[in-house]
Amino acid sequence: MKETKTDLLQGTLDLLVLKALALGPLHGLGVSTRIEQITKGTFQVKPGSLFPALHRMEEAGWLQSSWGESENNRRAKYYRLSRAGQRQLETETQEWKRIAVAIASALRAT
C-alpha cells in the first residue's frame, strides 16, 4: 500500500471534492477514486479526511445527499453539488488560480 505522495493543502480538499462532484453525483468511494483519477494519482484521499469534509460541506449547503444503489447493488449515500456548491466551486477555482499565480511568481523571483 502506497503512502500519500503529497499532503493536502488546507482548502485544497474542498476544491478537489467540489471538482470531482461537478461531473456528476458520486458516493464516498467514488469521490476518492475520482480525485485519484483527476490528479493522476497525486492525491489519495483517505476516509478519515474524506468523510468529515463531505459532511462539513453538506452542512454548509454546498452538497446534497441521498441514498441510492451502487453499480454492484450496494446501498450507498450519493453526494451531488447544490447550486451554492457550484458557485463555491467557481469562487474557489478563481481563488486557487490567484494563489497559484502568486506562488509561481514568488518562486520565480528567488
Binding site: M1, K46, P47, G48, F51, P52, A53, H55, R56, E59, A60
Partner: peptide, 24 residues
C-alpha cells in the same frame, strides 16, 4: 486497515457536523 478505524472516522465526522452547525 485502509479506512483506519471506523470509530475514529465517525468521531471526526460528528465533530465537523456540530462545529459547522454551531458556526453557522
Amino acid at each position: 486497515i485502509e479506512v483506519g478505524g471506523i470509530e475514529q472516522v465517525k468521531e471526526q465526522v460528528r465533530e465537523v457536523r456540530m462545529g459547522a452547525t454551531m458556526a453557522t
